[in-house]
Computed example of a mutant assay.
Amino acid sequence: MQHITTRRRIRAAAAVALSGAMIAALAACSSGGSGSASADVLPKAKAETATSAADFGGMKGLVAAANAEGHLNVITLPPSWANYGKIIAGFEAKYPKIKITSQNPNGSSADEVSAAKAAGTGSNAPDVFDIGTAVLSQNLDLVTPYKVANWSDIPADFKDASGKWYYDYTGLMSIGYDSSKVPAPTSMADLLKPAYKGKVAIKGDPTQANEAASAVYLAALESGGSPTNIQPGIDFFANLKKAGNFISVLPTQATVNSGQTPVVIQWSYNNLAWGPAGGSSANPNWKTLVLPGTAVGSYYNQAINAKAANPAAARLWEEWLYSPEVQNLYLASGAYPATLAAMQKSSTVDPAVLKSVGAPPSSFVQLTSEQATAAAALLKSGWSKAVG
């Protein structure tokens, strides 16, 4: 994986609404309508090595091949995560001949790899990955190159030059808390106070899940560490456990609503989805705090399983994800999409959504592939010993 700069300046620009004409044009180029029925269907063996829609004879051929497969296996995509509930529903509405199976929605990046290895070439093999950088960088042999139609909209340092992986979205590490049960924190250090005893959780095991590891990275930066030194983050959680404040419970909307996990350190888009913006199933008292100063982000990566059960549907899914329609859905959840800068330039970003979410920070810390790999090794050797 290529080196990715630790700080990237992202500029917000004025934008106008996505016009009906542009939406119609997008639908025309990727529709599963009558044009796809007459296209020749590419054999599976060739679909497995296709590196762009051109290998299918264009989008009509890709849709025809995906329709012929009739299935798509996605993995570790909770409906409330980055608007994936709406994204999956939108794909199924657009391509009704393709049934999506969503495997292990609450799993981790490591679970994605385990599932792919266990399934091999079986019909239940995950077709696509939405995966953290540290785990992906150790498993590049599992993925195969593919470049979406608007490949040029993805910044050069947001993708592998050959197309084996590409960023999709990032949130910012944040503290979510139930304002009816705990005082409002203003720093990570506040979480060490008695008021938070038995109340602080993160999203899983940091040695397995990128979101949990990123909570450690945030703690490291807030405790004098750096992207090359996350030990202060491990030490912080060791102290948090010693104080009796850290709990080993996997937080969900249910545990938040029941009061079991009134403080959760996780991505901003997940905290936002669990609060008032989440509708009737959410907690009206749930607040989201992105700490002042340098923000901690981590783009997730899209990649196609080299042994995908449905290789054409996998490639059509990637085309769907990088369409302005879905990139705007990521943004609406509070996750900044990879093509945001290009969308602002082409006026395909939804200005009302961008205004409500807020412009991304001018700079944020994201661990490079090398730093994430080193951090993962340190977590593997030190987390259970220090925190358990």
Rank of each mutant, 00 (worst) to 15 (best):
Q2R: 14
H3E: 08
A14V: 13
A14S: 11
G20S: 14
A21C: 08
A24K: 12
S36F: 03
A39I: 12
A39G: 03
A45W: 02
G57I: 14
A65Y: 06
I75Q: 08
G85K: 09
E92N: 00
K97E: 08
K97W: 00
I98L: 00
T101L: 00
P105C: 04
P105Q: 10
N106W: 12
V113T: 12
G122N: 08
A125R: 03
A125M: 01
F129N: 01
V135L: 10
L142A: 05
Y146P: 06
K147N: 05
V148K: 03
N150L: 09
D153E: 09
D153H: 09
D153V: 06
P155K: 03
A156W: 07
D157V: 15
A161N: 13
S162D: 15
Y166F: 15
Y167H: 12
D168E: 11
I175V: 11
S180F: 00
V182Y: 04
P185E: 06
M188G: 04
A189T: 14
L191D: 03
Y196N: 08
I202C: 04
T207R: 13
Q208P: 02
A209G: 13
Y217L: 15
P227N: 08
P227V: 14
F236P: 00
A238L: 03
G244Q: 08
N245S: 06
L250M: 12
P251R: 07
T255F: 01
G259T: 15
V263T: 10
I265F: 06
I265W: 02
Y269E: 10
N270E: 15
W274I: 13
G275L: 10
P276H: 05
A295F: 01
V296D: 03
Q302D: 10
A303Y: 02
A306M: 07
A308Y: 01
E318W: 00
E318F: 04
W320R: 02
P324E: 04
L329K: 09
A341L: 08
A342R: 02
Q344K: 05
S346F: 04
T348S: 08
T348D: 00
V353L: 01
K355H: 07
S356I: 10
P360L: 09
P361C: 13
S362A: 15
V365R: 04
A372L: 13
A376R: 05
A377I: 12
S384M: 13
A386G: 04
